[in-house]
Design a protein around this nucleic acid. Structure first.
Lengths: 127, 127
DNA sequence: TTTCCTACTGCAATTAAGTTGCATTAAACA
DNA sequence: TGTTTAATGCAACTTAATTGCAGTAGGAAA
Protein backbone atom coordinates (compact mmCIF):
# COMPACT_ATOMS: atom_id res chain seq x y z
CA UNK A 1 0.00 0.00 0.00
CA UNK A 2 1.61 3.20 -1.18
CA UNK A 3 1.74 6.36 0.85
CA UNK A 4 -0.74 8.99 -0.28
CA UNK A 5 0.32 12.60 -0.28
CA UNK A 6 -2.42 15.17 -0.02
CA UNK A 7 -1.53 16.97 -3.22
CA UNK A 8 -3.81 19.53 -4.86
CA UNK A 9 -4.88 17.00 -7.45
CA UNK A 10 -5.66 14.30 -4.90
CA UNK A 11 -7.76 16.77 -2.93
CA UNK A 12 -9.68 17.76 -6.06
CA UNK A 13 -10.55 14.16 -6.87
CA UNK A 14 -11.49 13.31 -3.29
CA UNK A 15 -13.76 16.36 -3.18
CA UNK A 16 -15.49 15.09 -6.30
CA UNK A 17 -16.15 11.67 -4.80
CA UNK A 18 -17.39 13.19 -1.57
CA UNK A 19 -20.12 15.06 -3.43
CA UNK A 20 -22.19 11.92 -3.83
CA UNK A 21 -22.13 8.14 -3.84
CA UNK A 22 -22.02 7.97 -7.59
CA UNK A 23 -19.64 5.67 -9.45
CA UNK A 24 -17.73 7.93 -11.82
CA UNK A 25 -15.94 6.72 -14.92
CA UNK A 26 -12.27 7.60 -15.39
CA UNK A 27 -13.20 9.23 -18.69
CA UNK A 28 -15.63 11.60 -17.00
CA UNK A 29 -12.99 12.56 -14.46
CA UNK A 30 -10.32 13.14 -17.10
CA UNK A 31 -12.76 15.31 -19.01
CA UNK A 32 -13.93 17.23 -15.95
CA UNK A 33 -10.42 17.96 -14.72
CA UNK A 34 -8.66 18.37 -18.06
CA UNK A 35 -7.71 21.94 -17.12
CA UNK A 36 -6.50 20.96 -13.66
CA UNK A 37 -4.47 17.81 -14.21
CA UNK A 38 -3.15 15.38 -16.79
CA UNK A 39 -5.05 12.19 -17.56
CA UNK A 40 -2.03 10.16 -16.42
CA UNK A 41 -2.34 11.81 -13.05
CA UNK A 42 -6.03 10.92 -12.86
CA UNK A 43 -5.27 7.25 -13.58
CA UNK A 44 -2.45 7.15 -11.06
CA UNK A 45 -4.32 8.88 -8.25
CA UNK A 46 -7.32 6.57 -8.70
CA UNK A 47 -4.97 3.61 -8.55
CA UNK A 48 -3.48 4.80 -5.31
CA UNK A 49 -6.83 5.64 -3.75
CA UNK A 50 -8.03 2.14 -4.59
CA UNK A 51 -4.89 0.60 -3.11
CA UNK A 52 -5.59 2.55 0.05
CA UNK A 53 -9.19 1.27 0.03
CA UNK A 54 -10.54 4.81 -0.10
CA UNK A 55 -12.16 4.06 -3.45
CA UNK A 56 -13.18 0.87 -5.20
CA UNK A 57 -13.62 0.21 -8.88
CA UNK A 58 -15.45 -1.94 -11.37
CA UNK A 59 -15.76 -2.23 -15.13
CA UNK A 60 -19.13 -1.32 -16.62
CA UNK A 61 -20.96 -2.82 -19.62
CA UNK A 62 -19.03 -0.58 -21.98
CA UNK A 63 -15.72 -1.78 -20.62
CA UNK A 64 -15.10 1.55 -18.90
CA UNK A 65 -13.55 1.63 -15.47
CA UNK A 66 -15.64 3.34 -12.80
CA UNK A 67 -14.71 4.36 -9.29
CA UNK A 68 -16.81 4.97 -6.20
CA UNK A 69 -16.27 5.74 -2.52
CA UNK A 70 -15.29 3.06 -0.06
CA UNK A 71 -13.77 -0.39 -0.16
CA UNK A 72 -15.30 -2.92 -2.50
CA UNK A 73 -16.08 -5.58 0.08
CA UNK A 74 -17.54 -3.26 2.65
CA UNK A 75 -20.94 -1.71 2.96
CA UNK A 76 -21.79 1.82 4.05
CA UNK A 77 -21.32 0.79 7.68
CA UNK A 78 -17.98 -0.85 6.96
CA UNK A 79 -19.45 -4.32 7.38
CA UNK A 80 -18.17 -6.98 4.98
CA UNK A 81 -20.56 -7.25 2.08
CA UNK A 82 -20.76 -7.48 -1.69
CA UNK A 83 -22.95 -4.77 -3.08
CA UNK A 84 -24.23 -4.46 -6.64
CA UNK A 85 -23.54 -1.55 -8.94
CA UNK A 86 -26.32 0.09 -10.83
CA UNK A 87 -26.17 1.78 -14.20
CA UNK A 88 -29.06 3.89 -15.49
CA UNK A 89 -29.51 3.39 -19.21
CA UNK A 90 -31.37 6.70 -19.40
CA UNK A 91 -29.15 9.26 -17.70
CA UNK A 92 -25.96 7.20 -17.59
CA UNK A 93 -25.35 7.71 -13.89
CA UNK A 94 -24.05 4.85 -11.84
CA UNK A 95 -24.08 4.13 -8.15
CA UNK A 96 -23.52 1.54 -5.47
CA UNK A 97 -26.73 -0.07 -4.25
CA UNK A 98 -27.09 -0.63 -0.50
CA UNK A 99 -28.42 -4.18 -0.81
CA UNK A 100 -26.78 -7.57 -0.50
CA UNK A 101 -26.85 -10.13 -3.29
CA UNK A 102 -26.96 -13.75 -2.23
CA UNK A 103 -24.63 -16.03 -4.15
CA UNK A 104 -25.84 -19.62 -4.19
CA UNK A 105 -23.38 -22.35 -3.32
CA UNK A 106 -21.76 -23.76 -6.42
CA UNK A 107 -20.32 -27.25 -5.93
CA UNK A 108 -16.62 -27.55 -6.74
CA UNK A 109 -16.18 -23.80 -7.18
CA UNK A 110 -14.62 -21.42 -4.72
CA UNK A 111 -15.93 -17.89 -5.10
CA UNK A 112 -13.56 -15.22 -3.82
CA UNK A 113 -15.19 -12.06 -5.09
CA UNK A 114 -18.08 -10.99 -7.22
CA UNK A 115 -19.19 -8.07 -9.30
CA UNK A 116 -22.87 -7.42 -9.88
CA UNK A 117 -23.93 -4.90 -12.47
CA UNK A 118 -27.61 -4.05 -12.67
CA UNK A 119 -28.91 -2.08 -15.64
CA UNK A 120 -32.21 -0.24 -15.78
CA UNK A 121 -33.78 3.06 -14.75
CA UNK A 122 -32.80 5.01 -11.68
CA UNK A 123 -35.25 6.73 -9.36
CA UNK A 124 -34.96 10.01 -11.26
CA UNK A 125 -35.60 8.43 -14.66
CA UNK A 126 -38.48 6.09 -13.80
CA UNK A 127 -41.59 7.84 -15.07
CA UNK B 1 -31.55 -9.30 -36.97
CA UNK B 2 -29.18 -9.80 -39.86
CA UNK B 3 -29.05 -12.90 -42.03
CA UNK B 4 -26.19 -15.24 -41.22
CA UNK B 5 -24.42 -16.97 -44.05
CA UNK B 6 -22.62 -20.20 -43.22
CA UNK B 7 -19.22 -19.06 -44.40
CA UNK B 8 -16.02 -20.95 -43.64
CA UNK B 9 -15.09 -18.46 -40.96
CA UNK B 10 -18.50 -18.61 -39.28
CA UNK B 11 -18.31 -22.40 -39.20
CA UNK B 12 -14.84 -22.28 -37.66
CA UNK B 13 -16.00 -20.01 -34.86
CA UNK B 14 -19.17 -21.98 -34.21
CA UNK B 15 -17.15 -25.19 -34.02
CA UNK B 16 -14.96 -23.55 -31.39
CA UNK B 17 -17.93 -22.58 -29.24
CA UNK B 18 -19.46 -26.04 -29.59
CA UNK B 19 -16.37 -27.62 -28.07
CA UNK B 20 -17.38 -26.50 -24.58
CA UNK B 21 -19.51 -24.10 -22.60
CA UNK B 22 -16.59 -21.80 -21.98
CA UNK B 23 -16.82 -18.05 -22.36
CA UNK B 24 -14.02 -17.11 -24.74
CA UNK B 25 -12.53 -13.65 -25.03
CA UNK B 26 -12.39 -11.98 -28.43
CA UNK B 27 -8.65 -11.64 -28.01
CA UNK B 28 -8.21 -15.38 -27.59
CA UNK B 29 -10.26 -16.02 -30.71
CA UNK B 30 -8.33 -13.47 -32.76
CA UNK B 31 -5.12 -15.07 -31.62
CA UNK B 32 -6.28 -18.62 -32.21
CA UNK B 33 -7.57 -17.90 -35.71
CA UNK B 34 -5.01 -15.34 -36.81
CA UNK B 35 -3.98 -17.60 -39.68
CA UNK B 36 -7.55 -18.30 -40.71
CA UNK B 37 -9.25 -14.91 -40.59
CA UNK B 38 -8.78 -11.21 -39.93
CA UNK B 39 -9.54 -9.76 -36.51
CA UNK B 40 -12.19 -7.53 -38.08
CA UNK B 41 -13.94 -10.66 -39.29
CA UNK B 42 -13.86 -12.17 -35.81
CA UNK B 43 -15.44 -9.04 -34.33
CA UNK B 44 -18.11 -8.90 -37.01
CA UNK B 45 -19.05 -12.57 -36.86
CA UNK B 46 -19.35 -12.45 -33.08
CA UNK B 47 -21.57 -9.40 -33.44
CA UNK B 48 -23.85 -11.20 -35.85
CA UNK B 49 -23.98 -14.38 -33.80
CA UNK B 50 -24.98 -12.34 -30.78
CA UNK B 51 -27.66 -10.51 -32.78
CA UNK B 52 -28.99 -13.89 -33.78
CA UNK B 53 -28.97 -14.98 -30.13
CA UNK B 54 -26.65 -17.87 -30.93
CA UNK B 55 -24.03 -16.36 -28.63
CA UNK B 56 -24.18 -13.91 -25.77
CA UNK B 57 -21.48 -11.66 -24.42
CA UNK B 58 -20.29 -9.89 -21.33
CA UNK B 59 -17.34 -7.78 -20.26
CA UNK B 60 -14.97 -9.32 -17.75
CA UNK B 61 -12.99 -7.72 -14.90
CA UNK B 62 -10.21 -6.78 -17.30
CA UNK B 63 -12.62 -4.97 -19.61
CA UNK B 64 -12.31 -7.73 -22.22
CA UNK B 65 -15.37 -8.84 -24.13
CA UNK B 66 -16.17 -12.54 -23.81
CA UNK B 67 -18.64 -14.66 -25.71
CA UNK B 68 -20.39 -17.89 -24.83
CA UNK B 69 -23.05 -20.14 -26.31
CA UNK B 70 -26.73 -19.30 -26.08
CA UNK B 71 -28.83 -16.24 -25.44
CA UNK B 72 -28.03 -14.14 -22.40
CA UNK B 73 -31.45 -14.30 -20.79
CA UNK B 74 -31.98 -17.99 -21.26
CA UNK B 75 -30.71 -20.97 -19.36
CA UNK B 76 -29.46 -24.26 -20.77
CA UNK B 77 -33.06 -25.40 -21.24
CA UNK B 78 -34.04 -22.15 -22.96
CA UNK B 79 -36.01 -20.99 -19.94
CA UNK B 80 -35.80 -17.27 -19.13
CA UNK B 81 -33.14 -16.76 -16.54
CA UNK B 82 -30.17 -14.59 -15.61
CA UNK B 83 -27.12 -16.72 -15.03
CA UNK B 84 -23.80 -15.63 -13.56
CA UNK B 85 -20.47 -15.84 -15.32
CA UNK B 86 -17.50 -17.32 -13.61
CA UNK B 87 -13.85 -16.44 -14.09
CA UNK B 88 -11.09 -18.63 -12.67
CA UNK B 89 -8.24 -16.50 -11.38
CA UNK B 90 -5.92 -19.49 -11.64
CA UNK B 91 -6.34 -20.85 -15.16
CA UNK B 92 -8.16 -17.89 -16.65
CA UNK B 93 -11.02 -19.93 -18.06
CA UNK B 94 -14.49 -18.55 -17.90
CA UNK B 95 -17.89 -20.17 -18.09
CA UNK B 96 -21.60 -19.70 -17.59
CA UNK B 97 -22.85 -21.08 -14.30
CA UNK B 98 -26.15 -22.99 -14.30
CA UNK B 99 -27.57 -21.27 -11.26
CA UNK B 100 -29.99 -18.40 -10.79
CA UNK B 101 -29.10 -15.27 -8.88
CA UNK B 102 -31.89 -13.58 -6.99
CA UNK B 103 -31.99 -9.82 -7.33
CA UNK B 104 -33.64 -8.16 -4.34
CA UNK B 105 -36.32 -5.56 -4.98
CA UNK B 106 -34.84 -2.10 -4.99
CA UNK B 107 -37.41 0.65 -4.35
CA UNK B 108 -37.62 3.30 -7.06
CA UNK B 109 -35.33 1.40 -9.40
CA UNK B 110 -36.38 -0.62 -12.42
CA UNK B 111 -33.90 -3.38 -13.25
CA UNK B 112 -33.96 -4.48 -16.87
CA UNK B 113 -30.92 -6.69 -17.06
CA UNK B 114 -28.03 -7.79 -14.92
CA UNK B 115 -24.56 -9.13 -15.25
CA UNK B 116 -23.02 -11.22 -12.51
CA UNK B 117 -19.34 -11.96 -12.57
CA UNK B 118 -17.98 -14.37 -9.98
CA UNK B 119 -14.25 -14.67 -9.49
CA UNK B 120 -12.49 -17.55 -7.78
CA UNK B 121 -11.21 -21.05 -8.45
CA UNK B 122 -12.84 -23.49 -10.84
CA UNK B 123 -13.35 -27.17 -10.17
CA UNK B 124 -10.06 -28.04 -11.88
CA UNK B 125 -8.01 -25.51 -9.93
CA UNK B 126 -9.43 -26.07 -6.44
CA UNK B 127 -6.84 -28.14 -4.60
C1' DT C 1 12.23 28.22 8.33
C1' DT C 2 15.09 25.88 5.38
C1' DT C 3 16.78 21.59 3.68
C1' DC C 4 16.30 17.25 1.67
C1' DC C 5 14.20 13.05 0.14
C1' DT C 6 11.23 10.97 -2.81
C1' DA C 7 6.36 10.69 -3.92
C1' DC C 8 4.04 12.80 -7.33
C1' DT C 9 3.16 15.23 -11.78
C1' DG C 10 3.14 16.47 -16.79
C1' DC C 11 4.30 15.44 -21.25
C1' DA C 12 5.17 12.60 -25.06
C1' DA C 13 5.20 8.31 -26.83
C1' DT C 14 3.34 3.72 -26.82
C1' DT C 15 0.22 -0.32 -26.32
C1' DA C 16 -3.94 -2.62 -27.00
C1' DA C 17 -8.99 -3.31 -27.87
C1' DG C 18 -12.18 -2.28 -30.89
C1' DT C 19 -14.17 0.35 -35.16
C1' DT C 20 -14.72 2.16 -39.95
C1' DG C 21 -14.37 2.60 -45.06
C1' DC C 22 -13.83 0.46 -49.15
C1' DA C 23 -12.70 -2.62 -52.83
C1' DT C 24 -13.02 -7.57 -53.50
C1' DT C 25 -14.90 -12.25 -52.74
C1' DA C 26 -18.01 -15.89 -52.21
C1' DA C 27 -22.61 -17.69 -50.20
C1' DA C 28 -26.99 -18.99 -51.81
C1' DC C 29 -31.09 -18.55 -54.46
C1' DA C 30 -33.55 -18.10 -58.80
C1' DT D 1 -24.76 -20.65 -64.12
C1' DG D 2 -25.47 -16.07 -63.35
C1' DT D 3 -26.73 -12.46 -60.17
C1' DT D 4 -27.29 -10.30 -55.84
C1' DT D 5 -25.52 -8.76 -51.77
C1' DA D 6 -23.73 -10.54 -47.37
C1' DA D 7 -19.30 -11.23 -45.85
C1' DT D 8 -14.25 -10.66 -45.94
C1' DG D 9 -9.47 -8.62 -45.80
C1' DC D 10 -6.68 -4.85 -45.40
C1' DA D 11 -5.32 -0.42 -43.94
C1' DA D 12 -6.20 3.34 -41.32
C1' DC D 13 -8.27 5.16 -37.36
C1' DT D 14 -10.28 5.85 -32.55
C1' DT D 15 -10.16 5.46 -27.78
C1' DA D 16 -8.84 3.70 -23.11
C1' DA D 17 -5.09 2.85 -20.62
C1' DT D 18 0.17 2.39 -19.72
C1' DT D 19 5.13 3.62 -19.54
C1' DG D 20 9.52 6.32 -19.20
C1' DC D 21 11.59 10.14 -17.75
C1' DA D 22 12.79 14.73 -16.36
C1' DG D 23 11.11 18.13 -13.37
C1' DT D 24 8.12 19.55 -9.25
C1' DA D 25 6.38 19.92 -4.73
C1' DG D 26 4.67 17.45 -0.32
C1' DG D 27 6.12 17.00 4.25
C1' DA D 28 9.36 15.09 7.75
C1' DA D 29 13.47 16.26 9.93
C1' DA D 30 17.02 19.49 11.10
Amino acid sequence: MSIIRKTKTVKLLLKEFNKSNEAISVIELIDKFNKKMDKTTVYRILDRLEDSRILHSFVDQDGLKRYAKGASNTDFNNEPEIHPHFLCEDCGTSSCLPVTIQIPDIPNYTIKSAEHLLIGRCKDCVS
